[in-house]
């Protein structure tokens, strides 16, 4: 910015007094030329946007938060989702907005004595909940732990032996613990995730902004992010869908286990429980004193993971013996 006179054409234009009209035109042309170059450069750098296929519809963009939708607006939203799924996967889904039932609070109990680490639950969950197959998203992570420790750093996440169980190890599946005091809900800046009356922490996939603070906050590593557009083969779509549950997600939003809301709020068991070959998984209403989970919590040696973080999980582990 040292002002040597010759560097800038400005003062020269001024000094050539009588020709100023002509000079103005020239500087105008030069300016518009520069501006056109600038706009062209910006347009060129934005060129990748032409590949954008999955544009957000105006309807989706303007849609309100789940808790603020009137029944009519909810019906419109369900219609929109039905249409989108049909267009994308050529299958007509049955999308419902299932509400929590009165007098019900769900609790999960997992028998570590029985779990053999077969990961059938993992894959049943993927199929039930329309998770992305590529990249792979799974809500349940099974750890192979050496007997004698609960230090998870000693756990193996990627075990792949010929057959399970292996001697000297026990297996510990971890999924969303549906905490009573959920850190993920606390940190969300836009209330896109919250705890429902029946104890399930849900996500409004149409409201999440994808900041991933909840993912950092979760002490159980239960949350997953859609780093790209999820892909599911058309013939593997589960058409029985819930708004807060297993409807297909978009790129850039969070998802996680929701105790199979589309099943459990309609009186069925979660998919992971149904598929379990050993009966290690138990699920039910803790408010019902005669339920199986009430019995387990009263009579078995039960513990929760990372009790010290104060999250008060609704997911309990227990031993039989």
């Amino acid at each position: 910015m040292h002002g040597d006179n010759c560097q800038c054409s400005g003062p020269k234009c001024n000094s050539s007094g009588e020709n100023s009209g002509q000079m103005d035109r020239r500087s105008f042309l030069r300016k518009s030329g520069l501006m056109a170059t600038g706009i062209a450069a910006i347009a060129a750098s934005l060129a990748p946007l032409r590949e954008l296929t999955d544009m957000t519809s105006v309807e989706e963009f303007l849609q309100k938060h789940y808790q603020e939708l009137t029944p009519e607006q909810m019906n419109k939203a369900l219609d929109r989702i039905t249409r989108e799924v049909e267009r994308q996967y050529s299958i007509r889904p049955h999308v419902r907005d299932l509400k929590p039932m009165d007098g019900v609070e769900f609790v999960y109990a997992l028998n570590l004595t029985r779990c053999i680490g077969c990961r059938k639950c993992v894959h049943a969950c993927v199929a039930e909940n329309n998770q992305s197959r590529s990249p792979e998203i799974q809500y349940i992570r099974v750890l192979k732990m050496p007997n004698g420790t609960f230090d998870m750093e000693k756990g193996d996440h990627n075990y792949a032996p010929e057959s399970v169980p292996e001697k000297g190890f026990f297996y510990m599946p971890v999924q969303c613990h549906q905490c009573h005091n959920p850190p993920c809900v606390k940190v969300c800046p836009v209330n896109a995730t919250w705890q429902e009356k029946d104890g399930i922490t849900v996500i409004d996939y149409d409201w999440c902004i994808g900041c991933r603070h909840c993912e950092a906050a979760c002490p159980y590593w239960a949350r997953r992010f859609n780093f790209t557009k999820p892909s599911i083969p058309k013939d593997q779509i589960n058409p029985d869908m819930a708004y807060l549950g297993n409807r297909p997600r978009h790129q850039g939003v969070m998802e996680k286990c929701h105790f199979c809301i589309q099943r459990t709020r309609a009186g069925r068991y979660p998919a992971c429980l149904e598929v379990c070959p050993t009966g290690a998984r138990k699920f039910g209403n803790i408010l019902d004193p005669n339920s199986e989970v009430s019995y387990i919590l009263k009579n078995k040696r039960v513990f929760v993971l990372k009790e010290d973080v104060g999250t008060l999980p609704r997911f309990f582990y227990y031993f039989d013996v």
Binding site: H65, V190, G252
Partner: peptide, 17 residues
């Protein structure tokens, strides 16, 4: 942000803060 198009959800008053 995964969904920068939804930045308006962050605006107090219009969004849900």
């Amino acid at each position: 942000l995964g969904r920068p198009d939804r930045f308006w959800h962050l605006i107090p008053g219009i969004g849900k803060f």
